[in-house]
Simulated assay, not measured.
Amino acid sequence: MIPLLNLQSLVRGIKGVIPGGISVKDFSMATQTSELLATSILDNFLQNGIGTYQDNMIYFKENDRLKAALLAISMGAAVDEVSRLLQWQDFESLAAEILESRDFDTDKNVILTNPRMEIDVVGIKSGTAILIDCKHWNKMSQSSLESAVVKQIERTRKFLAKEKVHAAIPAIVTLYQQDMKFLEGVPIIPIHQLDSFCEEFSGNIDEFYSQSNV
């Protein structure tokens, strides 16, 4: 783990990872750091394959913010702290990246038709699917959470009817939920616990499936 001050600076640097070209001066303004510290952060990013340097400018691609977030997490940054700096698209990509790291075949924004439904992230492993609805909200009321669960169960039933999988588990991934819990048999998983959930997924499929209302 890198020193705390440097780690905090690295997390702050995520704010400045914007697609296109940016100078050190503009990066320091975007991240509210000194130009010296901005240079250090950018050097760290470049050394880890995030961005490219050309003509005194650093050029970032669309997925570089996610790569910067994953770098910070790998160095010890809190997942929920990093997630606050991501847009909802980044949040979905982070969830998909975690599933892929646990050997799930993963797709994002899966569309079902008649009626049209969209699933944020689908991961399939050993014939069993986990269908994730990502909720990048600051706060979730109980009624909002209950509504999200009902809709995700509906999506999962439709997915099961159309796709060739043995079983499918609906799940909600949130940013601020403190601990994993079940609502109507659906796991509500804070993003910082998604990796451990995926690690234990195969050994608990029967339990998850028996609790769900799919």
Score class of each variant (00 low, 15 high):
residue 70 L to K: 14
residue 70 L to M: 11
residue 70 L to N: 03
residue 71 L to C: 05
residue 71 L to E: 07
residue 71 L to P: 13
residue 72 A to G: 10
residue 72 A to D: 12
residue 72 A to L: 08
residue 72 A to C: 15
residue 72 A to V: 02
residue 73 I to V: 14
residue 73 I to L: 09
residue 73 I to C: 09
residue 74 S to D: 14
residue 74 S to T: 13
residue 74 S to N: 15
residue 74 S to Q: 05
residue 75 M to V: 03
residue 75 M to L: 15
residue 75 M to E: 13
residue 75 M to Y: 15
residue 76 G to I: 06
residue 76 G to P: 01
residue 76 G to H: 10
residue 76 G to C: 00
residue 76 G to Q: 04
residue 77 A to W: 06
residue 77 A to S: 12
residue 77 A to V: 03
residue 78 A to D: 10
residue 78 A to W: 02
residue 79 V to N: 12
residue 79 V to C: 08
residue 79 V to W: 10
residue 79 V to M: 14
residue 80 D to W: 09
residue 80 D to K: 14
residue 80 D to T: 12
residue 80 D to H: 12
residue 80 D to V: 12
residue 81 E to M: 09
residue 81 E to N: 15
residue 81 E to Y: 09
residue 81 E to S: 15
residue 81 E to A: 08
residue 81 E to Q: 13
residue 81 E to P: 03
residue 82 V to H: 07
residue 82 V to Y: 09
residue 82 V to F: 10
residue 82 V to Q: 11
residue 82 V to A: 11
residue 83 S to N: 08
residue 83 S to F: 12
residue 83 S to T: 11
residue 83 S to P: 01
residue 83 S to D: 11
residue 84 R to I: 08
residue 84 R to N: 15
residue 85 L to R: 14
residue 85 L to W: 08
residue 86 L to F: 07
residue 86 L to E: 09
residue 87 Q to H: 06
residue 87 Q to K: 06
residue 87 Q to A: 04
residue 87 Q to V: 03
residue 88 W to T: 05
residue 88 W to C: 07
residue 88 W to N: 03
residue 88 W to G: 05
residue 88 W to L: 01
residue 88 W to A: 15
residue 88 W to R: 03
residue 88 W to M: 05
residue 88 W to P: 15
residue 89 Q to S: 01
residue 89 Q to L: 01
residue 89 Q to K: 09
residue 90 D to P: 13
residue 90 D to G: 15
residue 90 D to T: 06
residue 91 F to I: 06
residue 91 F to W: 00
residue 91 F to Y: 04
residue 92 E to D: 02
residue 92 E to K: 00
residue 92 E to R: 06
residue 92 E to H: 00
residue 92 E to G: 00
residue 93 S to M: 03
residue 93 S to W: 12
residue 94 L to H: 10
residue 94 L to C: 14
residue 94 L to R: 11
residue 94 L to Q: 04
residue 94 L to M: 04
residue 94 L to I: 13
residue 94 L to S: 08
residue 95 A to V: 04
residue 95 A to T: 03
residue 95 A to S: 05
residue 96 A to Q: 04
residue 97 E to D: 09
residue 97 E to G: 04
residue 98 I to D: 04
residue 98 I to G: 05
residue 98 I to L: 04
residue 99 L to N: 02
residue 99 L to Q: 00
residue 99 L to E: 03
residue 100 E to L: 11
residue 100 E to Y: 12
residue 100 E to M: 13
residue 100 E to G: 11
residue 101 S to T: 07
residue 101 S to F: 08
residue 101 S to R: 09
residue 101 S to I: 01
residue 101 S to D: 02
residue 101 S to K: 07
residue 101 S to A: 00
residue 102 R to D: 06
residue 102 R to W: 10
residue 102 R to Y: 04
residue 102 R to M: 05
residue 103 D to C: 11
residue 103 D to P: 02
residue 103 D to Q: 08
residue 104 F to L: 02
residue 104 F to W: 05
residue 105 D to S: 09
residue 105 D to Q: 13
residue 106 T to G: 03
residue 106 T to M: 00
residue 106 T to A: 12
residue 106 T to E: 02
residue 106 T to W: 10
residue 107 D to T: 04
residue 107 D to W: 06
residue 107 D to M: 04
residue 107 D to E: 14
residue 107 D to G: 02
residue 108 K to G: 02
residue 108 K to L: 11
residue 108 K to V: 07
residue 109 N to P: 00
residue 109 N to R: 15
residue 109 N to T: 05
residue 109 N to E: 14
residue 109 N to W: 07
residue 110 V to Y: 09
residue 110 V to F: 14
residue 110 V to W: 10
residue 111 I to L: 00
residue 111 I to R: 11
